[in-house]
Amino acid sequence: MAADQGIRIAGDGVAEVSMTDARANLTQLIRDVRYGGRSAAFTERGARSAYVVPAEFYEQALEDRLTTEAIWRLIDDTFGEQNREQLKVDLSRYRDQMRHET
C-alpha cells in the first residue's frame, strides 16, 4: 500500500485511511485486509472510527464473545455476588497482564 494512495500503516500495523480518502482506496484496502491479513481502520480527524478486519478475525471474535458470556453465566450460577466481584477484579488484572505481555 503506497502512502500516496492515502493509506498509511500505523505503528501497531493497522492500515489507516481517512474518511475523505476512503472511497478512492476502498478496493485496495479491502484486498489488503482479505489477502494480507492486516486489519484496517477508517479515521476521522486522525481518530479511528471504524475497523475492517479479516473474516476469520470477526468470526473468532464472535466465538470468543459467546465463550466469555458462557463463562460469566457459569460464574453467576456457581459463586455468590461477593465472590463474583472479586473474580471480576482478578480477571481484569489478568487481562491487563496479558495485554502487556503481547
Rank of each mutant, 00 (worst) to 15 (best):
Thr68Gln: 11
Tyr94Ala: 14
Glu16His: 08
Leu66Phe: 07
Ala50Gly: 11
Leu29Asp: 00
Glu56Ala: 09
Glu81Tyr: 00
Ser18Ile: 02
Gln82Leu: 07
Asp32Ala: 10
Tyr51Arg: 11
Asp64Trp: 13
Arg73Gln: 01
Leu91Phe: 13
Val17Thr: 02
Arg23His: 13
Val89His: 15
Gln97Glu: 11
Gly80Phe: 07
Glu56Leu: 10
Leu62Ala: 04
Gln82Met: 04
Phe79Asp: 00
Ile75His: 01
Arg31Gly: 01
Arg99Tyr: 03
Leu62Val: 15
Thr67Met: 04
Val53Gly: 04
Glu63Asn: 14
Tyr58Asn: 13
Thr43Val: 02
Gly80Asp: 01
Ala2Thr: 09
Leu66Ile: 11
Gln86Met: 13
Gly37Met: 01
Gln28Glu: 02
Leu62Ile: 04
His100Asn: 13
Arg99His: 11
Thr67Lys: 05
Thr78Lys: 06
Asp64Glu: 04
Ala10Lys: 14
Leu74Gly: 03
Phe79Ala: 03
Ile7His: 12
Ala3Tyr: 15
Ala10Gln: 10
Arg23Glu: 01
Gly6Tyr: 03
Glu85Asp: 07
Glu101Ile: 13
Arg65Thr: 07
Glu101Val: 04
Ala3Thr: 14
Gly6His: 10
Glu85Met: 12
Ile71Asp: 02
Ala3Trp: 12
Ile30Trp: 12
Asn83Arg: 14
Ser49Lys: 15
Ala70Val: 00
Val52Asn: 15
Arg95Tyr: 04
Asp64Val: 14
Leu91Thr: 15
Ala61Asp: 00
Arg45Cys: 00
Arg99Met: 09
Arg84Ala: 00
Val52Cys: 15
Ala2Ser: 15
Thr67His: 07
Ala2Trp: 06
Tyr51Trp: 09
Gln5Arg: 09
Asn25Cys: 04
Ser49Ala: 08
Thr27Leu: 05
Ala47Asp: 00
Glu44Arg: 14
Ser92Thr: 08
Arg73Ile: 01
Gly80Tyr: 05
Asp12Tyr: 14
Tyr35Ala: 08
Arg23Leu: 05
Ser18Lys: 05
Leu29Phe: 06
Ile9Asn: 08
Gln97Ile: 13
Gly13Ser: 02
Glu16Pro: 06
Asp32Ser: 12
Tyr51Asp: 02
